[in-house]
Design a protein around this nucleic acid. Sequence first.
DNA 1: GAGCATACCTACTCGTGCGTAAGGTTACGC
DNA 2: GCGTAACCTTACGCACGAGTAGGTATGCTC
Lengths: 216, 216
Amino acid sequence: MLARVSSTPTFKRLPRAVREQQMLDAAVKVFSRRGFHAASMDEIADDAGISKPMVYAYLGTKEELFVACLHREGTRMMEAIAGAAASDLPADERLWRGLRAFFGFVGAHRDGWAVLYRQARGEQPFAAELATMRGRLVEVVAGMLDHALRAKGREVRATDLEVVAYALVGATESLADWLADHPEADPEKTATRMMNVAWLGADQLLRGITWHPPAG
Amino acid sequence: MLARVSSTPTFKRLPRAVREQQMLDAAVKVFSRRGFHAASMDEIADDAGISKPMVYAYLGTKEELFVACLHREGTRMMEAIAGAAASDLPADERLWRGLRAFFGFVGAHRDGWAVLYRQARGEQPFAAELATMRGRLVEVVAGMLDHALRAKGREVRATDLEVVAYALVGATESLADWLADHPEADPEKTATRMMNVAWLGADQLLRGITWHPPAG
DNA sequence: GAGCATACCTACTCGTGCGTAAGGTTACGC
DNA sequence: GCGTAACCTTACGCACGAGTAGGTATGCTC
């Protein structure tokens, strides 16, 4: 066996923790470019500058690897948002800061977002995990609306609140998607636009103004 | 070879057009349950009550089959919406009818929606096609907003308009997704909720009321 | 400087599922 | 009633990619 001849400068041996991060970086990149199925473990290993068995040794099977990506990116995102939107602020201020943090994250981690949102969504095994994460977001938004409503002495059925929150989260994700496809776009400006759509509509609702279908 | 013994009542031979529809029905069903990759041509053929080579003979490769599904479901949906929202109505009326038609469609074709939205989105080869369809929707919505604005003597930059439209479409898709997961929910009611989120916010914008970030 | 653990490799196996070759059977025109 | 074309089948080839077996090198500890 020729093995590694000294022609190549005998690449560094790195501690596990470092290699794991490199692998995750590569995996996120490849998954986001190719999609879960089309991505091959060989390509990921290659991209990480390591051989395939190392990936299996450290991060396990392909599914487990994907879950690990999901976890890392998801955690990073949630932390970015939670860190920005402290809960002792008024609702509109929290919403604004949360949105800014969110779009900032997406702008800076387009690959991560693609993995999280575009890929995980379609694949059965991961959709549930993703849904849970989104569920937490919806709850937070619904909580903010509810809080603001109660402050005005109003009360709304929980389902209605949840659905509205769901719509707002959806709109936000959609804009994030748009942002991921427009590298030249400004995350801050996108956040402002979202705020316009969301808060002006919500504000109306908070005042008790509602729309209802025409008769017939 | 035993071949088909007369025990089974010699299943009917059907004309191509009919079989193609049966195949598409089966394909939509299986794709929506399993996802594009996990779905096997064998299962689709089986579900259509036909053998695999027939599928290849009529609809071509797996990718082509999926595109065919996408096309049929997409066309049906667009027709449902376009049919409901005639362009000679006022903007809010058009929006309302379009939304109602849309949620009605999703409520009635949950499988089709899952294929269109959840699957096509993640898979590179189809994402483009899907994006085009959504693009048309966004244009329509943006056009409605623009029309309403001009009627009030206002003018907004095209980009802003497009982004707002994008957000509204995203919110709507998100609610459709919610609807697909809640079989007991009422499409009509969901449309009303969406109208509340969208139109109240849009109405504010139409009046020239905008939100802007706090100083600092 | 022997021993041991950990990092790392090449080179396979093997299942799965797409796509097809080659042939059987039914309907319909003439 | 017979040919021909369209319908439909079984049974396979084959590529691709997940996962593994088994071995080599390197650094750390005492």
